[in-house]
Amino acid sequence: MAFSKRNPIETVVAIGIGSALFTILGRFGSIPTWIPDTNVETTYALLALFAVLYGPLAGVLIGFIGHTLKDLTYGTPWFSWIIASAAVGLIIGLASGKVRAVIDDGDFSFKTIIRFNLYQIAANAVAWFVIAPSLDILIYAEPANKVYTQGLVAGASNMVTVAILGTLLLAAYGRTRVKKGSLTREA
């Protein structure tokens, strides 16, 4: 109901709650993989979903605030990656218009999956292959080969995470928005 128009107050609240979720999942929602030092960061699937549901402004701010708060609970903000997270939210949020309209109608097709994934791959590529390593070099003057390797690993792992988890969440969310009316009791 409240989704039909994007209410500015709802966006404010979504940014707050989304950032809180990002923080919690960032701390407790990492799943280790068989590749050393590489985790499935479930929090990026959440970021993708919220960016789609609440738009690019919410996406960019959830990435920024959520990542900052998560880092601050450890004590050290890592600014280059915070900005990269914000970029992920922003770019996926740009896909919001078309994808969300489809989801609100409870009509989640293969085309929507492709569209969502194109945006998320672009978002993760820009954020982790370009923004994060460049900022690492600019801010921290870290060795280029190190930061590009790290960016590559993080970007690839986030792409896969969002492709699997993000798509599943989007589909599951879409199903909860199915309109009533066609339901009959069975004997």
Partner: peptide, 17 residues
């Protein structure tokens, strides 16, 4: 508005946890 969303994040982190 954006400042308040930071406050909401901090307010609800324990509840969401």
């Amino acid at each position: 508005r954006i400042a308040y969303s930071v406050s909401i994040a901090l307010r609800y982190i324990p509840d969401i946890q």
